[in-house]
């Protein structure tokens, strides 16, 4: 045995212990230091952004769904014949709701305009007169007509219902900012108009005037 051998063997357990400890601390650190930027990015992913989600929905699935919207006159006829069957065929219901929501589209003639709303007589309805079958209120917009009428957004996909509601509020804000000003500016009695939007119809309501929340309005 070399003269220094005793000294080496005395330190060996300490070196081995330190190595094991280093491995343990590496695998299971008592404190993990994470760059601030990384936590910010993580938080940004976790926080729901209703404006971004509404923008994505508005420009993509919602516009595409307009092609499948039920004709407003057809919906009115179906509701007059059998409200439950109309709801089952064309509508969407949120949980145990006592109303159905629909995505509708139509063309008609504006019969009256005031500060709060625009009334429209449909071109292809069964009533040959000038009675208004559709009313578009000029804001503010409340409710969930577009969110729920589209049938494309499911509350079960949202861990926090506040996010689902914030999304609806953001959709309504876009209606107020991007659709209704143009309608208010161009609406006049006798003018033709084309629209697509959401509508909510309560189970207990009489045959309704459809109160449409539009996401698209055009003057052909």
């Amino acid at each position: 045995m070399r003269p220094g051998g005793i000294s080496v063997s005395r330190w060996t357990p300490w070196v081995a212990g330190a190595a094991v400890l280093a491995v343990l601390v590496w695998v299971m650190p008592l404190v993990r230091i994470v760059p601030l930027e990384a936590t910010r990015e993580q938080s940004a992913v976790a926080v729901f952004d209703p404006a971004a989600r509404a923008a994505e929905f508005w420009t993509g699935p919602l516009q595409a769904a307009a092609a499948d919207a039920v004709d407003a006159a057809e919906l009115l006829g179906a509701l007059a014949d059998d409200p439950a069957a109309a709801a089952a065929r064309y509508g969407h219901r949120l949980g145990l709701a006592t109303m159905s929501s629909y995505l509708v589209a139509g063309e008609g003639t504006i019969v009256s305009v005031d500060a709060r709303s625009v009334a429209i007589s449909l071109d292809d309805d069964q009533d040959p007169g000038n009675d208004a079958e559709v009313v578009i209120e000029l804001g503010p917009v409340f409710g969930n007509a577009i969110r729920d009428g589209s049938g494309l957004l499911d509350v079960s996909d949202f861990p926090n219902a506040q996010d689902f509601n914030a999304l609806s509020a953001e959709i309504n804000r876009r209606v107020e900012e991007e659709v209704l000003p143009a309608l208010a500016a161009g609406a006049e009695a006798g003018r033709a108009v084309r629209f697509a939007g959401g509508v909510e119809v309560a189970d207990a309501s009489e045959l309704p005037v459809l109160r449409v929340v539009p996401f698209r309005v055009e003057f052909p």
Binding site: G95, A161, N165, S168
Partner: peptide
């Protein structure tokens, strides 16, 4: 009342509080 997770409970029967509060606000 809900919990903020969709993969824990089997089902969550919850009040549509937001819509009710909108009606109350109006």
């Amino acid at each position: 009342r809900e919990i903020n997770a969709t993969d824990a409970a089997v089902s969550q029967v919850i009040s549509d509080n937001y819509s009710g509060a909108v009606a109350l606000g109006r």
